[in-house]
């Protein structure tokens, strides 16, 4: 006796293959965990501690918000991100003119700067901050330098790309009235690339604000340091208050920079003249 099943109701070969792949990936991952002596099971075993922690955290220590030292550290984090963005953006802007095909003095310079930027982009921030903490000492200044170095690689490339997208006809027309190279950059390239620069800088600030928090933990100061300190003392009510503050700060700054970026992109004349 045979059951008549239409062929297309059965799982297809491709589907079966996909299932096999997925199961294989999970088995390999589990074996890797096992091999490396890690215990992923503890995610589920230790989950009961969540309730304990929640009990210790609630209610958050709201009284902290009225302490002035909190706002000092908040402003420290914000100014770390701001200064890192300004320094990094300034250096990136200078390097971008050497890295763009239409403004570079020589193709070899372009290649060298591009390689430098690509290498810099992939250095993890942890390495930079650990070296700088030894070189310039503990404090927000090390954090500022780290953020600046981190921004150069990323935004140098963005800036160079937006310079390369500048309209050739405008550059040629400015060239044809006998302007020097610097004048061409000032009057033909810069006005075209400026909106994209400024929009990217707002994005960089957003990014740097997030990055400033871990840097604070390593000794860069600011709100990250306060958070780590409170956790070290097991003051979980304070930890929750700091966490709320960080979430609010990041979300608000993200909204503001989103709004600024959008208004610059839709009205480029805000920054070109």
């Amino acid at each position: 006796m045979s059951i008549d099943v239409p062929v297309n109701a059965l799982p297809s070969r491709k589907f079966k293959l996909m299932i096999v792949y997925i199961v294989a990936i999970f088995i390999v991952m589990y074996l890797l965990f096992f091999f490396l002596d890690l215990s992923p099971d503890s995610v589920f075993i230790d989950f009961r501690f969540v309730a304990d922690l929640a009990q210790q955290m609630f209610p958050p220590n709201i009284a902290l918000f009225w302490r002035s030292s909190l706002f000092v550290s908040l402003i420290e984090t914000l100014s770390m991100a701001f200064l890192g963005t300004v320094c990094g953006g300034g250096i990136a802007l200078l390097l971008a003119f050497f890295a763009a095909t239409n403004t570079t003095p020589h193709p070899l310079v372009r290649l060298a700067v591009r390689t430098l930027l690509a290498m810099e982009r992939s250095i993890p921030q942890l390495i930079v901050i650990l070296v700088l903490l030894i070189a310039v000492g503990i404090g927000p200044f090390a954090g500022v330098l780290t953020l600046a170095i981190g921004s150069v690689g990323m935004y140098g490339k963005f800036f160079a790309d937006s310079i390369e997208q500048a309209d050739k006809a405008i550059i040629e027309s400015v060239d044809s009235v006998g302007s020097t190279r610097l004048q061409t950059i000032r009057f033909a390239v810069l006005p075209q690339a400026m909106p994209s620069f400024v929009a990217n800088l707002f994005y960089a600030f957003d990014h740097n604000l997030r990055a400033a928090i871990p840097l604070g933990i390593f000794g860069g100061g600011g709100i990250g340091f306060e958070l780590e300190f409170a956790r070290g003392l097991l003051h979980y009510k304070d930890v929750l208050a700091y966490t709320i503050l960080i979430v609010v700060m990041i979300t608000v700054m993200e909204r503001i920079s989103d709004w600024a970026r959008r208004s610059i992109i839709t009205q480029p004349q805000l920054v070109t003249r």
Binding site: L38, D46, F49, I217, R231, V239, T243, V247, I250
Partner: peptide, 28 residues
């Protein structure tokens, strides 16, 4: 939006309080 507003380092600090030091809080 909450996930995106919470830097992973802050999540890690909260999770260390639950799981203790180790790979598991980093993974989560």
């Amino acid at each position: 939006a909450l996930e995106r507003g919470l830097p992973e380092i802050v999540q890690l600090l909260l999770l260390i309080a639950i799981f203790g030091l180790g790979v598991v809080p980093g993974l989560v």
